[in-house]
Amino acid sequence: MELVGLLNYWIVIVLMMTGFYIVISHGNLVKKIVGLNVFQVSVFLLYITMGKVHGGTAPILEEGIALYSNPLPHVLILTAIVVGVATTALGLALVVRISDAYGTIEDDEIDAMENND
C-alpha cells in the first residue's frame, strides 16, 4: 500500500476541516463567511490536485510537449471561484442588513433578541 500518494489529499482535508471548524464554532457572521471561503479554497485544491499528472505541464498546447495535466478540473474550478465570490458578496450584503436591523452580528445575541420579542 502506497499511502504517500494520498498525503496531499489529507492536507487538503485538514484545511477543509479548519474552514468547517471556523463556520460551526463561531457565532460571528463575518467569521462564518471567512470560514466558508477557507473551506471553498480547500475544495478547489482537492479538485486541482486530482487533475495533476506526474511529469505533465500546464494544458497550453506547444510543440514538443506530450504530457499535459488534466484541463477539465481547471475549467470547473474557474467557474466555481467566480460563483464563490458571488455568493460571498450576497452573504456579506445580508450581514450588513442584519447588522442594521439588530445592531449586532453575533448569532446568539440575535437569537436572544428574537426570543425576547
Binding site: V41, F44, L45, I48, T49, G51, K52, G56, T57, A58, P59, I60, Y68, S69, P73, H74, I77, L78, I81, V82
Partner: peptide, 13 residues
C-alpha cells in the same frame, strides 16, 4: 494552483 499546472485558476484565485 500554479505549481499544480492550473495557471488559469491561479490567476483567477
Amino acid at each position: 494552483y500554479v505549481i499544480l499546472d492550473a495557471v488559469d485558476v491561479g490567476f483567477t484565485e
